[in-house]
Amino acid sequence: MNAASGVKLVGFGLLTWILPFLISIPLYSPEGEPLYDIFLVKSILLVFSAALGTFLILVYFRDVHARFIWEGALLGGVWLLINWVLDALILLPVSGMDAGTYMAEIGLRYLMIPIIAVGIGYAVEQAVRSATVRRTGV
């Protein structure tokens, strides 16, 4: 991995946390209470996060030319850690939530990141193999 890829990997990972956090601000009162039905708020944030993450994964893969599944796993692992660490540093102290409650209500949802990233990596790998077979006849 070159420096530019590393910057993109970490930078995009930070965006997967920062943008949903910014979107959530108008959905909560200054006291941290949801201004709308909590299930609506969580659904909005989950759908936005999934769309954003998928888009950023696809953009990241534009510069990947080999080892697609590995790149998906690497990206998924790095972004998962970024999101968990930022939540531990910022969200948990602000919310007063304990680690067990956090994992049950929020933390496990971040497993979507490596699942989607590896899935995209696998799909790209299969597409490249199919194209190679069609081109070479092997």
Rank of each mutant, 00 (worst) to 15 (best):
T54V: 14
R67M: 04
K42A: 15
S24I: 05
Y60F: 15
A50W: 12
I25S: 05
V59H: 00
D63A: 13
L58S: 09
L19N: 00
E33G: 05
T54E: 07
I18A: 13
L52P: 04
I57T: 11
L40Q: 11
S29Q: 12
L58C: 13
G32E: 09
G53H: 00
A51E: 05
L19Y: 00
L52Q: 02
I69D: 02
V64Q: 02
A51Y: 07
L58A: 14
I57G: 09
L22R: 06
A51L: 15
H65W: 05
L19R: 05
L19G: 03
I18P: 01
R67G: 09
I23T: 05
I25D: 03
L19H: 08
S29T: 15
K42R: 13
W70Y: 08
S24P: 08
Y28G: 00
A50P: 07
Y60W: 11
G53D: 02
H65G: 04
V41Q: 08
G32H: 06
I23P: 00
L40V: 14
R67W: 01
D37N: 15
V59G: 00
S43P: 02
F61G: 02
I57C: 12
E31D: 15
F61E: 05
D63Q: 12
F55Q: 07
P30E: 13
L56Q: 03
I44A: 02
L22F: 09
I69E: 07
F21R: 00
S24A: 15
T54D: 06
F39E: 14
